[in-house]
């Protein structure tokens, strides 16, 4: 199990990266944490003439405050996201989702940009990005552009990032209102990709009525999905009136599961709905305590 030969590039600036991508087109591949790409190379399930290592491009690393929200460089390690206080403070869902990604050794190398660009439908970050309407900043030889989450995940493992483009950063805005967030998933073993999971944010007005609901789902479709039926059902309810199990069941309508060795279509639908309900209950409980504390 050894990778095929390739030419290695270690650029130090985004400009050089996109230059290399423009030059080599489909024959080039960015290498971030390597936690998904290198296994595929080792098994020779994929091969590229040119590997463009992003690990020496300093400008792609780090979390910065951005207009009340945050901007996270694509090469920021998952481990750094996990422990970053600004992330925990402003985008709690990212903080809550991160420990579910693989194991600490994986998170020490794996990057948020790699997770989003790889776009595994069972992966945590894509579901969080979708739920929170995150924005991707994308660079290419012809300049910068942005892609909102709703347009980013095109199909399984396919995103708005073209082969000659580089995902540079991800932007998330903070919720400026009483809110509750929760994340959970079911995986076969500790650290495995999820069979099904949910990322939920609930925001209320001062009177405790839900005026913002964000429900992202993983593992239950060809891409991460939003449970719009659930979101719609929540709007306007008082948090204490919402029956999470009941509302969670609506999520089944928003799913489009794919069966595989680990779970059938039917399983993913059932367990996914259960999880949406449970995570919703946790998020609601969060809002209540926050309101109570505040």
């Amino acid at each position: 199990m050894k990778p095929a030969p390739f030419e290695y590039h270690a650029p130090e600036t985004v400009a050089d990266v996109v230059g290399l991508l423009a030059e080599h087109g489909d024959d080039a591949k960015p290498l971030a944490g390597g936690q998904s790409l290198v296994p595929l190379l080792a098994m020779r399930l994929t091969r590229f003439e040119h590997i463009v290592d992003l690990n020496r491009v300093d400008e792609l690393f780090g979390v910065s405050l951005d207009n009340g929200g945050i901007s996270i460089g694509a090469m920021t390690r998952q481990a750094a996201v996990e422990t970053d206080t600004a992330v925990a403070d402003r985008v709690p869902l990212l903080h809550l989702a991160t420990p579910h990604i693989g194991h600490f050794q994986i998170r020490n190398r794996g990057t948020i940009g790699g997770s989003i660009a790889h776009a595994d439908p069972a992966s945590e970050y894509p579901a969080v990005m979708l739920a929170l309407d995150g924005v991707a900043e994308i660079a290419s030889a012809s300049g910068f552009r942005e892609a909102p989450a709703a347009e980013f995940f095109e199909s399984t493992f396919m995103t708005a990032v073209a082969p000659d483009e580089l995902l540079v950063a991800l932007r998330f805005s903070a919720w400026d209102q009483p809110a509750g967030f929760a994340f959970d998933e079911i995986a076969r073993r500790s650290g495995d990709f999820a069979l099904a999971g949910a990322a939920v944010g609930i925001g209320t007005d001062a009177a405790g009525r839900i005026n913002r609901a964000a429900v992202g789902m993983l593992g239950v479709g060809p891409t991460p999905l939003r449970a719009s039926s659930v979101e719609a059902a929540l709007m306007g309810l008082a948090t204490s009136d919402a029956d999470p199990a009941e509302i969670g069941r609506l999520a089944a309508e928003d799913m489009d599961p794919i069966g595989d060795v680990h779970a059938s279509v039917e399983y993913r639908r059932r367990a996914g709905s259960t999880l949406v309900g449970r995570v919703l209950a946790n998020a609601l409980a969060q809002v209540n305590t926050e309101a109570g504390n505040g």
């Binding site: 296994p39 098994m43 076969r188 073993r189 500790s190 650290g191 495995d192 990709f193 060795v261 680990h262």
Partner: peptide
């Protein structure tokens, strides 16, 4: 957890450690 499963054409579907699930300490 573990299943070295084949499909009906005799293709093995658990050819990596991501599919053949050896229990970890957490299980």
């Amino acid at each position: 957890y573990e299943h070295a499963v084949y499909d009906a054409s005799g293709n093995p579907l658990a050819s990596t450690f991501l599919d053949y699930l050896v229990p970890t300490a957490a299980e």
